[in-house]
Amino acid sequence: QLNEKPLPEGWEMRFTVDGIPYFVDHNRRTTTYIDPRTGKSALDNGPQIAYVRD
């Protein structure tokens, strides 16, 4: 279940091809599976993935 609260300024939620949510921090140009609103991860110790700018 996804959090309904808005993401912090400069953050975006995207999904992997497998449908796993991850979070893009455009301020720091990093990505993470940890939801910045809750501190909880969509994966157990998930790796960071490459930042992609559209």
Rank of each mutant, 00 (worst) to 15 (best):
T31G: 02
T16D: 08
I49G: 15
G10K: 08
P21H: 04
H26V: 05
L2V: 06
V24H: 03
Y51V: 09
T32C: 03
A42P: 12
T30E: 14
T32N: 02
S41I: 04
I49C: 08
E9A: 09
K40N: 13
D18N: 03
P47C: 05
T16Q: 06
P47L: 07
D54P: 02
T16M: 03
G39L: 09
D44N: 06
N45H: 09
I20Q: 12
L43T: 11
R53P: 11
G46E: 15
Q48K: 11
G10C: 04
D25C: 01
K5W: 08
Q1R: 04
I34F: 10
G39A: 13
E4R: 06
Q1M: 15
K40S: 07
F15E: 11
I20L: 09
Q48W: 02
G19Q: 14
R28L: 12
Q48L: 04
G46Q: 07
D18A: 12
D44T: 15
Y51K: 15
T32Q: 04
I49W: 08
P47E: 06
L7M: 13
W11G: 01
M13T: 04
G10E: 04
F23S: 01
P8A: 04
I49M: 11
P6A: 14
N45Q: 12
I49V: 11
N27A: 09
P8L: 03
D25W: 01
N3A: 01
T38G: 13
S41F: 11
V24R: 04
A50Q: 12
I20C: 11
T38Q: 14
Y22I: 02
H26L: 05
A50K: 15
T31L: 02
G10M: 03
D25I: 02
K5F: 05
F15G: 07
E4W: 02
G19D: 14
P21C: 10
N3P: 03
Q48P: 11
R14N: 06
E12N: 05
F23Q: 00
Y51R: 15
E9K: 13
L43S: 14
Y51N: 15
R28V: 08
R29I: 03
E4Q: 05
N45R: 10
D44V: 07
E4A: 05
N27Y: 08
P21D: 01
V52G: 09
E9Q: 05
D35Y: 00
E9N: 10
P36Q: 01
D35S: 01
T16G: 07
V24C: 06
I34H: 07
T30D: 07
F15I: 04
W11P: 01
V24P: 00
T31Y: 02
P47M: 07
D44E: 13
Y51H: 15
M13D: 01
Y33P: 02
F23A: 02
E4I: 08
I34S: 09
T38V: 12
T31I: 04
F23N: 00
P6C: 11
E12H: 02
V52N: 15
R53V: 09
V17C: 07
P21F: 03
G10A: 05
I49H: 14
Q48H: 03
P47S: 14
T38Y: 05
I20E: 15
Y33G: 03
G10R: 04
K5E: 12
N45Y: 04
N45A: 14
P21I: 10
D18T: 10
E9R: 11
